[in-house]
Nucleic acid binder design. Sequence first.
RNA 1: CGGGCCGUAGUAUACCGGUAGUACGCAUGCUUUGGGAGCAUGUAGACUGGGUUCAAUUCCCAGCGGCCCGACCA
Length: 412
Amino acid sequence: MLQSKLFPKTQKQAPRDEISANAQLLIRAGFIDKLMAGVYTFLPLGFRVLKKIENIIREEMVGAGGQEILMPALQPKENWDKTGRWETMNDLYRIKDARDKEFALGPTHEEIIFPFLKKTISSYKDLPVYVFQIQNKFRMELRAKSGLLRGREFLMKDFYSFHANENDRDRYYDLMIDIYKRVFARAGVGKETYFTFAPGGTFSKYSDEFQTVTEAGEDVVHICDKCRKAINNEIFREQRKCPQCGKSDFRKEKAIEVGNIFKLKNKFAEDFDLKFKDKDGHEKFVITACYGIGLGRLMGAVVEVNHDDKGIIWPEAVAPFRIHLLLLNNELRIKNKADELYKDLQKAKIEVLYDDRDDVSAGEKFAEADLIGIPYRVVVSEKTAAQNKLEIKKRNEAKARLITKKELLKYV
RNA sequence: CGGGCCGUAGUAUACCGGUAGUACGCAUGCUUUGGGAGCAUGUAGACUGGGUUCAAUUCCCAGCGGCCCGACCA
């Protein structure tokens, strides 16, 4: 990608009223644009990051046997009446069309997937079923906040598993815990993310969360460093010992919930009469669990955890590009070298953002490169050309060094 | 939803009951090119509605919007 064509430009100053690092940096660097509180447009750079995150999640979900589907955001009120959530869910968007017919904008999809399964499941032979989608959710947050961390419309991966018995469900649930850990490790927040014992909701007493430690977080967790397990502050009173090692040696931190998984009691199966005929000829309720990850929130958490005073420091797996190539001199012989390198990198299938602009000072290019935060910065200038080398610097390291093109292609 | 703070060019800000100023940006020209460059000339602005007043961007009220704290959050 040529930076001369990249849309939009970066900004020197963050909007005054944004406090959180993810909002400030992502807006300044041109990754996102705020339409209103909690609702964002993902611009070319931000969209690339979102897609990287999405693909990591998709790969892992498919690896777990999940089959991807896409359910509607526009949903009939009747489904929500059946579970009672039309009345009880505070943050449900309830809308009316011109005929006064009422609909929900989906905040989650139990009300859709359960009745669908009802049409297709009749025998234990039809189970288990693993389905997921990556789709925009709507929640009427009374207080959207902290950039991407709490939105009203946001991309979420929701995964639903359906089983013939609790053993099978529990086995699968444990597998999913490991898969979730892998997702967060790949996204670059593995070190800061803790598997957390947490309160449930209306339909189960407890749930499990994945909490990424950051000052911008809105939850408080108590961490057992020995086991890398945490307990959500909301249930710390009833659970004062580490579920793993039994000790009560905790570190208290603020954290953001990037993932939440829970075993469902029979609530939805009963509401939608989701039963199957077991081997023994008896009708039984299908046993289920749900697994969610907020993609935008995860992207925000990645920025909260990986930035400095100059800008974002993207982990390689989710960075919008791998190399940021800067041309610091407009002389044709030097520009030719950079152009050629750009082509070679593209040929090698290395994602590169090439700052080819001829009307921007070197200082500005450096400052923007730091702000945007692409992992490898490669400079072509008079200095490097004189030695027939390139300068390379990692965004998370202080020092640059000179290498040959051959070395570069091998290195990145 | 309760509390607090705040709405002035694209962005960040200043002043003011009587002609709204600065910086960045943007445009043009020249110079410059290893850390958000220099000079010159331009460009562009008071959230909405009501009230007070000879006069309101300024004061008052309401609405709308934003951020922060809290509550809420399958």
